[in-house]
Amino acid sequence: MTSDNKLTNAQIAWRAAQDIEDGAYVNLGIGFPEMVAQYQPPGRQAVFHTENGILDFGEAPAEGEEDWDLINAGKKAVTLNPGAAFFHHADSFAMVRGGHLDVAILGAYQIAQNGDLANWRIGSRGVPAVGGAMDLVHGAKRVAVITDHTTKNGDPKLVERCTFPLTGVGCVTRVYTSLAVLDIENSRFVLREKLPAISMEDLQALTGAELVLEGPVEELRVPDL
């Protein structure tokens, strides 16, 4: 546990990884979500998809061993696991949109209680870039978000309605934050787990929408990483 009583990104990624079934086909968003791959529970092996055209890629190669024709969607060099496959972009997004992926895990600027996600653009300035996020959120059987519970300024990221441009409508079903695990059900945030160190009142104060209690709230317990 970190000193300021919230999970590190690695710990959030670890918690999300515990829900991925053995043999699941999984797409991890660029950046922080890529960490999820490191924390698969022993005995479980997911198959990772990268939308530029590889199934079952492995860890990064050693420095100096990179092959720049063998990269992931974040343009980082990867390796292949035995049984890997290459395919073109239309096949890759057929896997996505066609409902063949079990899980997509993405980052977020905002998540609304109705499952709307905003994660591609903060305002109307600068150069917009979307990549595959809008396809992923409407394709995978389960779309989860991993995120700090609030912004760096302390503003809630879990909100009643997104104010940033949307990536997808009603698409997120589970949110793993630095403080809690929540399911989105019937347009509400249902609290499933929270850090023992934070009170319900404090957690609610850091959340921009009502936290619904439905059944027991488990303790969110994550190893030191």
Partner: peptide, 18 residues
């Protein structure tokens, strides 16, 4: 782009491919 010298049509990646 910021100078207004180039147009951008931004398309989600899977939609671009399809």
């Amino acid at each position: 782009y910021l100078a207004g010298d180039i147009e951008l049509e931004l398309i989600p990646q899977g939609t671009l491919a399809e």
